[in-house]
Amino acid sequence: MRMLHRDPRRWLFLAGGVCCFIIALGIVFTFRGKFGSDTKPVRTASVLPEFAVAQNTADSESMWVVYVTGAVMSPGVYEIPEGSRVNDAVKRAGGFSIHANPDGINLAARLNDGTHIRVPAMGEADKTQTVQTPTPMTPSGTVTSTTQQDSGKININTCTEEDLLALPGIGPVLSRSIIDHREKNGPFGDIEEICNVSGIGTKRFEAIREYIVVTGY
């Protein structure tokens, strides 16, 4: 490295350089907001395609809000297009983390607005309820898959009329009554509350109690 030659004009260069920066900043300030629809920086292209789809379709489609927690890259509350499945929400949260147990969650299950999805970590799949759906009625009514929980029971807070027909002793009229009761009074807090539905007594409840479940209220 050769020795530095100290030019007496070096302070002049420095002052000139600082002036250039200040003038450039002044021009940016002067012309700010005068061109284009806005002057905010554009977020760069995401390599997460699902994120992109969610952003893009936000204007044209109604969106659902879901809460993704557990072994995912970025747990949090996300907007996803209506009709999405668990897989879409998990991808929206950045995908599985290194600790995730992919076998512990049904990625094909349909979602509802307001669903809480918890991706289990290795070794905790058995003791965790992975998908919790809060409200029974959703715009599209695509709740059938989430009503079938791990144990195969029907979630009476999210199921449809057709799902209820599978229960012993429940016909179309009772099925409609249960749905009406749920819409009128909100989700069931406990499976025993189904007895408040007119037409369901203790005997009928005993017949169906093994096949029903309540989550996510």
Binding site: D38, K40, P41, V42, R43, Q55, A58
Partner: peptide, 8 residues
């Protein structure tokens, strides 16, 4: 994106 923020 119309708002300037979001996927472009």
């Amino acid at each position: 994106p119309e708002t300037g923020v979001g996927f472009d």
